[in-house]
Amino acid sequence: MAQGSVNPSQVNTGPVKKAILDTLTLFLPAIPFALVFGLVVVESGLPALLGWSTSPLMFSGAAQITLVTLLGEGASLAAAATAALIVGARHLFYSITLAPRFQGQPAWFRWLGPYLLIDQLFALTVTMENRDPDYFRRYYLASGFSFWTLWMSFTALGLFIGPAIPESWGLAFATPVLFLGLLALSVDRWEKVVVAVVAMLITFALADMPNRSGMLVAAFLGILLGLMLERFRR
């Protein structure tokens, strides 16, 4: 892996090749997550194909696990659906953050792009310093469809081998490490460090809220704090 491969501004390769390399780097820690999802489907008692259908229909790992788990535990359809939507509500933040990058893009891309918008793709594109619209579109699509293909494949594979992975390997720890690394890349001013730390502390304080909804409150308050700090700077 070439140094700087996850920071799109630092490498002069084409957007498609670069996107695929970055995607592979970011997907490696997500492999255990995909396999665990397969295990969750098996344990939920849902038919395997029906559980796996959440991958193409929802394409949102945490929301998929929430929905399938709750359906397997006998929750009502409305309750399970509501919980899954709350878990996925952070995508609203992603949508408003990336909206300026979609301005001036073709209409088909504005309608197709959101389907591919997952945590990893947001993290890759929000830290992108290359402002060229054509580069952004090619990179976004190449990375998005790479993630999509890998997620479909590995969640299907997880139906068969997910139950066989020893928990003692601790592979799930790679996911918070990955996002902490992306967080470290995204903070280039002390105000952003303050916002990130405050959001983490509020999330911890609200960790027992239903369906992990404290995360949304923390993110909202963190952004509000950013607004105040920005006004203070001016």
Binding site: R90, F93, Y94, I96, T97, F122, A123, V126, T127, F179, L182, L183, S186, V187, E191, K192, V193, V195, A196, V197, V198, A199, M200, T203, A218, A219, F220, L221, G222, I223, L225, G226, L227, L229, E230
Partner: peptide
Amino acid sequence: YVAPAVMG
């Protein structure tokens, strides 16, 4: 500030 807040 959305990225640091949400990722944090």
